[in-house]
Simulated scan of single mutants.
Amino acid sequence: MVLGAALGVVVGTAFFVVESPEMSLAADSVGGPITGFAGKCVDVADGNSTSGTTVQLYDCNGTPAQQWSNPGDGTLRAFGKCLDIRGGGTADAADVQLWDCNGGPAQQWVVSQANDIVNPAANKCLDVRAYNSANRTPLQIWPCQGAENEKWYLSGGGSPASGPDVPPVGDGGGGDDESTSGFVVSEAQFNQMFPNRNALYNYEGLKAALSAYPAFATSGDDTAKKREAAAFLANIGHETGGLVHAVEQNTANYSAYCDASQPYGCPAGQDAYHGRGPIQLSWNYNYKAAGDALGIDLLNNPDLVETDAAVAWKTGLWYWNTQTGPGTMTGHDAMVNGAGFGQTIRTINGALECDGRNPAQVQSRVDSYQGFTQLLGVAPGDNLSC
């Protein structure tokens, strides 16, 4: 990444001048909030000034936990302590925290004209983990990619850091339809579909994950969009008992999902690759493939699929949009191209359910799909069974 010379960056009513990527921030006199992904703020968790406190994404609220300033030494400070990379790390996904200021490279930050906040020692950007817009999502460092979850707008107006207007969360006059949620299923409809769901499967996490596969539920006319959303949600609801289970319930199977013939093996352990998340992702090679596609190290950190809402949803969307499984097409293609819901069943579990192998399970999926399309106000279409 190349950062231009003499870049101006506004913080509060103060002005940073960055002479080069290696140079510190110039001193300011007044602090202010740093706004980013989903219009939320860089926040010190629970307003706790203790060293080691997580720095996170949270609704902007004007509290001292969201007031950041710098004294001219390249640091960003809240409560008189520094924004710091935990353990002085430089690796991808290293957490950031609040820590006693010590002048170390883990506490040096440069703001670019592209609205990145960069740690030069790691050559990485301040990043919202896994595109998750939920409150309390930890911030981390990650290779700078120009992604929305790495853009930060510092208050005070002016160029460049004021950037485009960032609307407050929920802005748009109420309601929860596609125009405000960005998804054809509203939060109220989602809650009605899954009244007893696990907290992992939250609506905010689903919306945050949608950016990974922008064609999902946005292709074709309104009917096609709603049918695809209903088909995906019906299938993952079936896989998880109504979005109740974050992990596979039969623990006796856990050791079976390590294919030791793969060159990368099973670094997280023999029992680590059991079903997790909305699609019940399983096998070491699927964790590897999904992680590679999403830019997340799931081979070494498979537990992210059961602990991080956006990661969990992304694995389900990864399978739906890119994998054919035992079928001949992806779930996305089946719905967009009019092949029908039955083909999505074949893609997900056709080897065990289709062609008369388990008609009761097939019918359960079909019943859910028909219920969801009715809730969304569209006809289910043809070819419902496999």
Rank of each mutant, 00 (worst) to 15 (best):
A161G: 08
A122P: 00
G163I: 01
Q189G: 04
S133E: 04
E148S: 02
Y213K: 10
S181P: 02
A122M: 07
V128T: 10
V184E: 00
L210T: 07
E228V: 14
P195N: 08
A134T: 12
A209V: 13
L200K: 13
Q107N: 14
C125S: 04
V128D: 06
Q189P: 04
N135L: 08
G163V: 01
A134H: 07
C125H: 04
P214R: 14
A161D: 07
P160S: 09
V185W: 00
Y153A: 04
Y153L: 10
V169L: 14
L139F: 04
N115V: 07
T137E: 13
N123Q: 11
R129K: 12
D221E: 02
N202P: 11
F216R: 00
E187T: 06
V184R: 08
N198I: 05
N132H: 08
A199C: 05
T180A: 09
A215D: 15
P168N: 11
G175S: 11
V184I: 15
G158T: 09
W109G: 03
G156P: 04
P167R: 04
C125R: 03
P164W: 00
W152C: 03
E228N: 11
R227S: 05
E204Y: 04
D222H: 01
E178Y: 15
N202K: 05
W109H: 05
R136V: 01
M193D: 10
A199S: 14
V166Q: 10
A106H: 05
V118Q: 01
P214S: 14
L233W: 00
S179E: 13
R197C: 00
V118S: 03
C125G: 02
I141N: 05
A188S: 15
L210I: 03
D176G: 13
N196V: 10
P164G: 08
F232T: 06
A208V: 05
Q113G: 15
E150T: 09
D165V: 13
P138Y: 11
L206P: 01
A208T: 11
A215Q: 12
A130T: 02
N235S: 12
D171C: 03
M193H: 03
K124W: 02
P160Y: 10
I141R: 06
N115G: 00
N191Q: 12
Q192P: 06
Y203F: 13
S159A: 09
N132G: 05
Q108I: 12
A122Q: 04
D176H: 12
N135E: 05
A130L: 08
D222Q: 12
E148H: 00
Y131E: 10
Q108N: 13
D165L: 13
G146C: 09
W142F: 15
G157C: 06
G175I: 09
I236V: 15
Q113V: 10
M193P: 05
P195I: 06
A215T: 12
P138N: 06
K226N: 08
Q140M: 11
E204G: 06
E148Q: 08
P138H: 03
V166L: 12
Q113T: 10
A188N: 07
D221F: 14
G157N: 11
T218A: 14
N115E: 10
P167A: 14
F194D: 02
V110Q: 12
G158S: 12
D176T: 14
L139C: 04
E178I: 15
A130Y: 12
Y131V: 07
F216G: 00
Y213F: 15
C125M: 03
D171H: 08
